[in-house]
């Protein structure tokens, strides 16, 4: 079976500046890949390039075998769901209305859901614990609830690849773990590519880590192999390590 996502030495320059240099990756079904690195490392650009939303300067992204920049928007949306770093709800539509927009590529609209769309929307709302909020307008719920609503929108898309830009930013620890559990559930049949600043979360939930700095991948592999003290120091410029406490891997940075 073809990989969900393959990046072969992908580079992106924006405004003459190299933002991503020679990033390679194979993401199979069943896998979660985490992008780590300081602000400005190129994580967002790499996700966008992988989905064909930002043109690459060189290299070849392959989304289930095809160059995503050559796919129609609809075809691309059926293969990959994307959650931007700062998802927006311009108009204060209801939570369920927002989630239903995830069915766009399937030909549905919030006011015209076919049974299978309704099933997908209900499942996404339930998975993100939004059932009691589904009729509430987006401008009247909390930041964490908004983040979950946008994640539910991406889940409702039912694309094999979930590409999420900092899905746990601004969430409390319990909510962040709930999101991680949702990603793991999705990875039972699909794949997940997500960026985060939560090194501990990435170490525990990702099958593969890409640690980036200034556009370059400085470490790549299984969490314990990639996240060495040397790599963490090179990426973030501070001393840190991954320790095992019981079943859990914990990132510790020395103050």
């Amino acid at each position: 079976m073809r990989a969900l996502l393959e990046l072969g030495a992908v580079s992106v320059s924006l405004g003459g500046r190299s933002v991503v240099a020679d990033a390679s990756l194979a993401l199979e079904r069943g896998q979660i890949v985490a992008l780590l690195g300081p602000n400005g490392a190129g994580k967002t650009t790499l996700i966008r390039a992988a989905l064909g939303l930002t043109p690459v300067t060189s290299g070849a992204p392959r989304l289930i075998g095809d160059d995503p920049s050559r796919l129609s928007p609809r075809e691309r949306a059926l293969r990959a769901a994307y959650l931007p770093q700062r998802p927006q709800a311009i108009w204060p539509v209801s939570v369920e209305n927002l989630v239903a927009l995830g069915r766009f590529a399937h030909g549905a609209a919030p006011d015209r859901l076919f049974p299978r769309d309704q099933v997908a929307v209900d499942a996404a709302i339930e998975a993100c614990a939004l059932t009691s909020l589904r009729k509430r307008p987006m401008n009247e719920i909390s930041g964490g609830e908004k983040a979950r609503a946008h994640l539910a929108r991406a889940l409702a898309q039912q694309a094999p690849l979930l590409a999420l830009d900092e899905p746990t930013a601004g969430l409390d620890p319990a909510q962040a773990l709930a999101v991680a559990a949702i990603l793991r559930k999705h990875a039972e049949h699909g794949g997940v590519l997500f960026s985060t600043h939560d090194v501990t979360l990435a170490a525990n939930y990702a099958d593969q880590i890409l640690l980036m700095r200034e556009g370059k991948v400085i470490a790549q592999g299984a969490p314990r192999e990639a996240l060495t003290s040397a790599a963490l120091r090179e990426a973030y410029g501070i001393s840190g390590s991954i320790e095992q406490i019981g079943e859990t891997l914990t990132a510790i940075f020395r103050v």
Binding site: L51, P73, Q88, V93, Q157
Partner: peptide, 21 residues
């Protein structure tokens, strides 16, 4: 009309859910 609906999510996400902007 459907494209306008998609734009509720902003430009970036509208393109990503399959809207032809």
């Amino acid at each position: 009309a459907r494209g306008l609906q998609a734009l509720t999510l902003g430009e970036e996400a509208a393109a990503a859910i399959g809207a032809n902007l």
